[in-house]
Design a protein around this nucleic acid. Structure first.
Length: 192
DNA sequence: TTATGGATCTTCT
DNA sequence: GAAGATCCATAAA
């Protein structure tokens, strides 16, 4: 089962749900660091808050490419955020990965994040990038290839997750969309 | 070529 | 709870 087949023919919102529970693995210094995706947000081209809303630009062009690639962007002068491109080619949709449950090689995460609090390692889009050493070099990376891969798990059932408004979206109508999915009862969310 | 503001996190009060 | 940090892509000129 490939990412393109799984994520290339569904809406951004469905893809966000599909990515919950998936395993994200980063090979760092020959050792795998991994975590389970517990929180995500959907963005597509019809969405005013999406970077792809204004059409193709050099920054966002990868969002219009085939599903299963990485869209990494820099924000607020010091943070990276990691997205998975989804949907049909040319549609400009992506899913922002907002939080992970740490799995393997937690020691390396603690080092990269300079903290010992396991609940503070991956509970935010910029934090998980730091914990997995993801930076701009992964812009456009194919997520079925090392050193950064996404492995889908079996789909979670709808009653295992909650849908909320997205975080950090200030202007309506983007604020009204319930396009953030989170694993219910997870202790590793960016917020309840 | 310059100006502006952001899908955030940390630190300090 | 509030503000600072501080780079990049975009839009305007």
């Amino acid at each position: 089962m490939s990412l393109i087949n799984e994520l290339g023919h569904i809406s951004a919102k469905d893809a966000a749900l599909r990515l919950i529970g998936a395993k994200l693995t980063r090979i760092y210094r020959n050792r795998p660091i991994s975590g389970l995706i517990v929180e995500a947000e959907a963005y597509d081209q019809s969405d005013l808050a999406s970077h792809s809303f204004k059409g193709i630009t050099p920054r966002t062009s990868i969002m219009f490419a085939e599903a299963g690639h990485a869209y990494v962007y820099f924000s607020y002068g010091l943070h990276y955020c990691f997205n998975v491109v989804v949907g049909p080619k040319g549609e400009g949709s992506a899913v922002l990965i907002r939080a992970l449950e740490p799995l393997d090689n937690i020691e390396s995460m603690k080092q990269l994040r300079s903290t010992d609090n396991i609940h503070n390692l991956c509970n935010g889009p910029a934090k998980l990038c730091q914990a997995l050493a993801i930076d701009k070099n992964f812009y456009g990376h194919n997520l079925s290839l090392a050193p950064l891969t996404v492995n889908l798990a079996k789909p979670v059932s709808p009653n295992e997750v909650i849908w909320t408004k997205r975080i950090g979206i200030k202007e309506p109508p983007g604020t009204e969309l319930y396009w953030r999915v989170a694993l219910k009862n997870s202790k590793y969310l960016s917020r309840p």
